[in-house]
């Protein structure tokens, strides 16, 4: 099949800097978002995702300037998430140069937001991020507020629900694996990807290139997202793409 699987470096941004932590704590500075975005573009990244993890709402506009600067220099799809509460937030991010906007907590609190934003701007630009944690074998529940709050929602049912509301893509993060470098939760990824017709991005736990291969081959992910393996120079995006291609995965090289 000629449609390539995608590699998406993820940049967690706060106060205009890229940071990386473990299980959403112990943040380390990883650099300037514009510089990093340009480097990943040069290395052949298929898309970029920016998650604004700024805690205070008064610093939220910084991400708009970051996206504006990146969008003027990097001509691949840009997804932005974090702090999206209403349709007007979606509008502001799209106007700043985002191609897709990701929503997480707000989608749980107000599912109508997914429907409204999708109806207004099209499902191609609405991503719903799902943070899931295993609660018993074969069962995962949706967490919000950066992984602190259990909603009690079943992750697979929630994925189907947001698809029906108008999500064009699902960004699925395993809270159990995030920051552990032990690989994606493949059972979770596969269960969600097989349950929906829209593309699923696997996230959380990438520690080496075999994890990316497994995410596609065993997890049935349409795209794989990783942060720290790229930020700290363990691998380039190009190395990752070549490795996946060598393992018979269709890639854009």
């Amino acid at each position: 099949m000629p449609l390539a699987k995608r590699i998406i470096p993820c940049l967690d941004v706060t106060a205009g800097r890229v940071v990386k932590g473990t299980n959403f704590v112990d943040l380390r500075d990883a650099g300037d978002p514009i510089e990093i975005a340009r480097r990943y573009d040069e290395q052949g990244a298929d898309e970029l995702t920016f998650l604004d993890i700024t805690a205070s709402s008064d610093a939220r506009d910084i991400i708009l300037h970051v996206i504006e600067a990146v969008a003027a220099q990097v001509f691949i799809p840009l997804t932005v998430g974090g702090g999206v509460r209403q349709v007007d937030d979606v509008r502001r991010l799209l106007n700043a140069g985002a191609d897709k906007v990701s929503m997480n907590t707000a989608a749980v609190q107000n599912p109508q937001l997914v429907a409204d934003a999708s109806a207004r701007y099209g499902n191609q630009c609405i991503v719903v991020a799902i943070d899931a944690k295993q609660t018993s074998p074969g069962k995962w529940e949706v967490f919000t507020h950066g992984g602190r709050k259990n909603t009690g929602l079943d992750a697979i049912e929630w994925a189907k629900k947001v698809e029906s509301l108008g999500a064009g893509e699902i960004l699925l993060t395993s809270m159990d694996r995030d920051g552990t470098k032990s690989g994606f939760d493949l059972l979770l990824t596969r269960a969600v990807s097989d349950a929906v017709d829209v593309p699923v991005i696997a996230s959380g736990g990438v520690g080496n290139l075999d994890h990316l291969v497994a995410g596609v081959k065993e997890g049935h992910a349409d795209a794989v997202l990783a942060a720290s393996i790229f930020h700290f120079g363990e691998y380039t995006v190009r190395q990752a793409k070549e490795y996946m291609a060598k393992h018979a995965i269709e890639m854009r090289l």
């Binding site: 995608r6 191609q124 064009g168 593309p199 349409d222």
Partner: peptide, 8 residues
């Protein structure tokens, strides 16, 4: 998947 999303 639909949308057909990505590099083809």
């Amino acid at each position: 998947k639909v949308p057909h999303m990505g590099w083809n």
